[in-house]
Simulated scan of single mutants.
Amino acid sequence: MKPFIRTFFKTLRIVLGPLMLLKERLTRPTGIVRAQSAQHSTDLQCRNLALYQYQTCPFCIKVRQEISRLSLTIQRIDAQHEGRDRQALLQGGGQTKVSCLKITDDGGNSQWLYDSEKIVAYLRGRFANA
């Protein structure tokens, strides 16, 4: 029974994944417009942020939509497959759950913020009025 269930969900992801990505592209919000100096300052702040994500994860899509709406240039790291990036997520944050925002301060210390709702709230609080 387990192999059947795994196959079912794998097939579902294969079929729905491209549709989810198409919907994301078609419904991408228009980014806010800032003065050039303000956008440059925002871009510099974003250099200390990295979003660990899966391409077709609905929660990650939600965070990416907010990143687009806020006109942020945050590095996106695909942690879906086994490898260096997934291992970094596990070692740094303690789990391989996505979406996860890695926030690095000027001293090089990192904070790992899980949960799309918390990430969106953090981004809005930090950048919506910038």
Rank of each mutant, 00 (worst) to 15 (best):
residue 5 I to V: 14
residue 113 L to W: 04
residue 23 K to Y: 15
residue 1 M to W: 08
residue 87 Q to L: 12
residue 125 G to P: 00
residue 72 L to Q: 04
residue 17 G to I: 03
residue 123 L to D: 05
residue 107 G to E: 12
residue 130 A to S: 13
residue 115 D to C: 04
residue 114 Y to Q: 05
residue 56 T to M: 11
residue 7 T to C: 02
residue 130 A to W: 11
residue 4 F to G: 00
residue 34 R to H: 09
residue 59 F to R: 05
residue 37 S to G: 00
residue 74 I to Y: 07
residue 115 D to P: 01
residue 11 T to D: 03
residue 109 N to S: 12
residue 97 K to Q: 15
residue 10 K to E: 13
residue 32 I to D: 12
residue 37 S to I: 11
residue 55 Q to T: 14
residue 64 R to L: 06
residue 90 L to S: 11
residue 60 C to I: 02
residue 53 Q to V: 04
residue 100 C to F: 06
residue 91 Q to D: 13
residue 112 W to P: 06
residue 17 G to F: 06
residue 2 K to Q: 02
residue 80 Q to W: 11
residue 93 G to F: 01
residue 58 P to K: 02
residue 67 I to Y: 07
residue 99 S to Q: 05
residue 108 G to L: 05
residue 95 Q to V: 10
residue 62 K to E: 08
residue 80 Q to F: 12
residue 5 I to M: 06
residue 111 Q to G: 00
residue 14 I to G: 10
residue 72 L to P: 04
residue 130 A to F: 11
residue 120 V to N: 01
residue 1 M to G: 09
residue 47 R to I: 05
residue 124 R to M: 07
residue 87 Q to N: 10
residue 114 Y to A: 03
residue 48 N to T: 10
residue 5 I to T: 02
residue 91 Q to Y: 01
residue 90 L to A: 14
residue 31 G to F: 13
residue 23 K to G: 03
residue 77 I to L: 12
residue 118 K to F: 10
residue 61 I to Q: 04
residue 54 Y to M: 14
residue 60 C to K: 03
residue 111 Q to K: 14
residue 28 R to L: 15
residue 97 K to C: 06
residue 16 L to F: 14
residue 73 T to K: 15
residue 33 V to M: 09
residue 56 T to N: 09
residue 50 A to I: 04
residue 103 I to Y: 06
residue 91 Q to I: 07
residue 39 Q to P: 05
residue 38 A to V: 14
residue 1 M to A: 13
residue 6 R to D: 05
residue 122 Y to E: 02
residue 74 I to E: 06
residue 77 I to C: 06
residue 44 L to V: 09
residue 126 R to N: 10
residue 66 E to T: 10
residue 42 T to E: 08
residue 73 T to I: 03
residue 55 Q to W: 04
residue 35 A to G: 09
residue 127 F to R: 03
residue 18 P to Q: 11
residue 1 M to Q: 06
residue 20 M to I: 07
residue 28 R to V: 12
residue 122 Y to V: 05
residue 50 A to W: 01
residue 72 L to T: 03
residue 3 P to D: 00
residue 98 V to I: 12
residue 121 A to F: 07
residue 64 R to S: 01
residue 97 K to L: 11
residue 16 L to H: 11
residue 55 Q to M: 09
residue 48 N to C: 10
residue 11 T to H: 04
residue 52 Y to Q: 01
residue 104 T to I: 12
residue 50 A to G: 02
residue 71 S to G: 01
